[in-house]
């Protein structure tokens, strides 16, 4: 028997959401310091992690994700809207949300649990962990493992003294480049122009990324979903905010 997945219909989505965890119980202070030391539970190396605790189907020989590894990352996934959207679009890919805030990540974990319970055989390819993406990517992933990476509405950290907290900076970009496969894509969206320019500048100057031109994005089914899948995206729409998109490709080191 083949395990199949069927995307939810619009009206179904609404109905499902009723039994889902309510966000108001999972609110938390907007920013936690990503540089401070917290106790996170993380594997000492990728081999030490048991992915079946997050994705029980990786050990199910009949599943689309049998024996696979995570290849898409939503960094700072917030309440998980993008994960839920991507799940039926990429039924064969394991997608992981990484979120640093405890309550927010708990919400996403409960949300996925509820979705799986309501829709057997669906949403088995998405999961969320509470972690600091700035510190622990190499603990979870091997070199070149990731094919798509998402940064939707990352925290802007407006003050100059807090720029070092930005999730895109010289140091983190090298680490992202390490876990990304060549030709893998990084999608960024923000409503803050200054942050958009900062991201474009840092990716462009890094040397291992090149910007993907808008023309080349027309056929990418993901792009349309980036603006409004996530909770932050919906909020920006409600407030009539701007949305700046930039997509980058991981390229080879031209000097080698």
């Amino acid at each position: 028997m083949e395990v199949t997945k069927r995307p939810l219909q619009e009206d179904e989505t609404d109905r499902q959401e009723l039994s889902l965890p309510q966000k108001k119980y999972y609110r938390q202070r907007a920013h936690s310091n990503p540089i401070a030391d917290h106790d996170f539970d993380y594997p000492s190396c990728p081999e030490a992690y048991d992915w079946s605790t997050l994705y029980p189907d990786v050990t199910n020989a009949k599943s689309n994700i049998y024996n696979k590894r995570v290849e898409m990352l939503d960094i700072g996934c917030g309440y998980g809207g993008l994960l839920v959207t991507l799940s039926p679009m990429f039924p064969d890919s394991m997608i992981l949300g990484m979120e640093i805030r405890v309550k927010v990540s708990q919400y996403v974990i409960e949300r996925i649990k509820a979705l799986r319970a309501n829709q057997p055989n669906c949403y088995n390819n998405i999961a969320c962990i509470r972690t600091n993406a700035i510190k622990y990517l190499p603990n979870f992933f091997k070199k070149g493992q990731i094919k798509k990476m998402f940064f939707l509405y990352p925290d802007p950290h407006f003050k100059k003294s807090k720029h070092k907290w930005r999730i895109i900076n010289d140091t983190t970009l090298s680490e992202y480049a390490y876990v990304l496969a060549e030709e893998a894509l990084v999608y960024t969206v923000t409503d803050v122009k200054d942050l958009h320019e900062w991201m474009v500048q840092h990716f462009s100057e890094h040397g291992l990324f090149k910007r993907v031109q808008d023309d080349d994005l027309k056929d990418d089914p993901v792009v349309d979903k980036l603006y409004e899948s996530s909770e932050e995206g919906k909020k920006v729409t409600r407030n009539n905010g701007d949305k700046f998109l930039a997509v980058f490709m991981r390229i080879k080191d031209s000097d080698l």
Partner: peptide
Amino acid sequence: NGKNIVHYMMGHE
């Protein structure tokens, strides 16, 4: 060009 990482050697605790 230290921005290009060859390996992370993970395992220490």
